[in-house]
Design a protein around this nucleic acid. Structure first.
Lengths: 205, 205
DNA sequence: ACTTGTGAAGCATTTCACAGCC
DNA sequence: GGCTGTGAAATGCTTCACAAGT
């Protein structure tokens, strides 16, 4: 929970987006203006964001893409593999399991869980679907630090409780509820309909 | 694009979450403190958020749940059905198509598109998958105002361009890129990995 | 006694603007 | 000439605190 120097959350999210831009950038160097243009933000914003992590650029030249990439990855904790599990083998869980963005960024799925007996034991895109009661076992065996909740709203809190009980400190929640967790657990939510709903407002106004 | 009185974006997102809380609330009235507790925010925040849309509460009593719900839905533009299309019939598109949250909130899917010949013509959870070149036709025929982009990063901008060309003014983008669009088009992005990536940082710090 | 609605204060984030460096 | 890094200004958002209503 505690941060060395308190990096603003919006900065963290933007840095991840810069990472993608850098990865697809051809030239060996890039300016803050070019990153800003690709990310749709202000150039000063880019420089300020980077400044939370150090000084990476050369005045008059810009940033060395390769070097900036590896520095940022390291500072963001994205330079090593992490074991994650997915709870919920429905349509969404299934989509997440083979979403390339996860494995590409070092998040290795080491378990898929569901409480539906019809699904348990079957293979889902290469992963065996396990019953929820094996959660704790898999978590400790693979040293899982992150759980991805892709179950219906009704069971999301129960799953979160089980994850925390088993020692998971990071949760990505795809269910449309606000999870109640202790202060030392970090929850980040992705709500599939929220943005769509706000769009209704924007189109009318 | 233009708003009557400029409602902050965070407020819009929270209002949508309050909507869900209200829908699941048993009692006929609710206080700002109760909404706040369920949403994990400050009670003053709830009152301020609601105040952007009007005065709905009674001092000493709270808010009439039914009345607040219907007022908010109306002000958010969620009181009527809207036609949407989904572009991309891969794992994610497929998950979105039968995600209950969409239809439940008045977003009616009237078309599913993909450019993969192997998928075109086949039915996907009840929807016929159509080729991208029928986009404009379906959009004008069904009066589609919102397009949901669930294609890989590489084709997302092309799809956005085609949507805009065909008269769509609202886009929900699930691809991990920043789309370039004219000022009168509203894009809202949902990034499936961004939150997971920031979690890596939080767990290390 | 309890709860709303809201000015005003407090805090956070973004943008500006420019000194300093290549 | 072009670009970074960063104080300072500007903006935006959240929380406080309280008058007013029931």
């Amino acid at each position: 929970m505690a941060e060395r120097k308190s990096v603003p959350d919006p900065t963290l999210l933007r840095i991840c987006r810069y990472l993608r831009i850098l990865e697809r950038h051809g030239a060996p160097t890039i300016s803050s203006a070019a990153i800003a243009e690709a990310a749709g933000v202000n150039a000063a914003q880019v420089r300020k964001d980077l400044s939370f992590f150090g000084e990476f650029g050369q005045p008059g030249v810009g940033y060395d893409v390769k070097q900036l990439l590896s520095s940022l990855k390291k500072m963001m904790g994205l330079d090593r593999e992490r074991e994650v599990i997915v709870i919920g083998a429905g349509a969404l869980g299934s989509a997440l399991i083979n979403y390339p963005g996860f494995e590409n960024r070092g998040f290795k799925i080491v378990g898929v869980f569901d409480n539906n007996p019809a699904k348990i034991g079957h293979r889902l895109r290469g992963y065996e679907v396990m019953p929820i009661d094996r959660l704790a076992e898999v978590i400790s065996e693979h040293n899982v630090s992150i759980g991805i909740i892709a179950v219906p709203r009704q069971s999301a809190q129960d799953v979160a409780d089980a994850l925390i009980e088993a020692g998971v400190y990071g949760i990505v929640n795809f269910a449309p509820v606000t999870l109640k967790v202790p202060d030392d657990v970090v929850v980040r939510s992705v709500d599939l309909t929220l943005q769509l709903e706000t769009l209704a407002f924007h189109l009318d106004n």
